[in-house]
């Protein structure tokens, strides 16, 4: 450390270069390296292959590898950018970047739209919202009468489906989110602003000079 001309980030065999990932995201090089610590701990939890599979993702989220969850599956699928059934380090960093406090509202809005457009039709449809609502109720062991679920869906679509075609398009979703900003709360992880503090063990290992990068 301390060499002003040093730009030599550590290399991770089989993974994208931290300097490149930092240049494409809101993370600094040392933050990308700190994320590698997190990635490493998740990706070796079941199979030590340097990739995160669905079971490992669930284990990291719930501390329980057998817990099936519709939403965790959706997040996993969106993180699995290359559609390989696993998340590699580049996918992990770029996807988490959307959750950075400094990421744009457009990116966050777009991510939530894709999250809820489960069938990838370009619309969030009523039956998808119903399916997610029922999944949420099961997960939280809440019971609501069928009529109540329909009332909630009616109300939601009355507010969000402005053209009344029974589905929520991208523009309708953007407008809805602007009126209901709390819906994007899940899209910001304060941890990401200070990731090197979250993983202090990394700091002692860093080979990167932040000034130089």
């Amino acid at each position: 450390m301390g060499c002003l001309h040093s730009t030599a980030a550590r290399e991770y065999p089989g993974h994208e270069n931290p300097v490149k990932l930092a240049s494409e995201t809101a993370f600094s090089v040392s933050e990308v390296e700190a994320l590698y610590e997190l990635f490493k701990s998740i990706s070796c939890s079941v199979v030590d292959d340097g990739l995160i599979n669905k079971e490992e993702f669930q284990l990291a989220l719930f501390k329980n590898r057998k817990k099936e969850n519709l939403f965790a599956n959706r997040i996993f699928d969106l993180f699995d950018v290359k559609r390989k059934g696993v998340i590699d380090f580049g996918d992990f960093v770029r996807s988490l970047n959307v959750f950075h406090p400094n990421a744009s509202l457009e990116e966050k809005t777009d991510f939530t739209f894709r999250l809820y457009d489960m069938d990838c039709t370009g619309y969030i449809e009523r039956q998808e919202v119903k399916q997610m609502l029922i999944a949420l109720l099961c997960e939280s062991e809440m019971k609501l009468a069928d009529d109540t679920i329909e009332v909630i869906l009616d109300q939601t679509f009355e507010d969000a489906d402005v053209d009344g075609d029974g589905k929520i398009g991208k523009t309708e979703w953007s407008d809805f989110v602007i009126k209901n900003p709390s819906l994007l709360k899940i899209m910001t992880l304060p941890y990401l602003r200070d990731i090197t503090t979250t993983f202090p063990s990394f700091v002692f290992n860093s080979e990167v000079d932040e000034i130089a990068t």
Partner: peptide
């Protein structure tokens, strides 16, 4: 009785599966 301010997405966004903060908790 349905809370007047609830919409489906507000409920959905409380899912534990959407709370990625837990990835950072040991």
């Amino acid at each position: 009785k349905t809370p007047v301010t609830m919409n489906a997405f507000e409920l959905i966004s409380t899912s534990q599966g959407l709370n990625l903060g837990s990835l950072f908790e040991k």
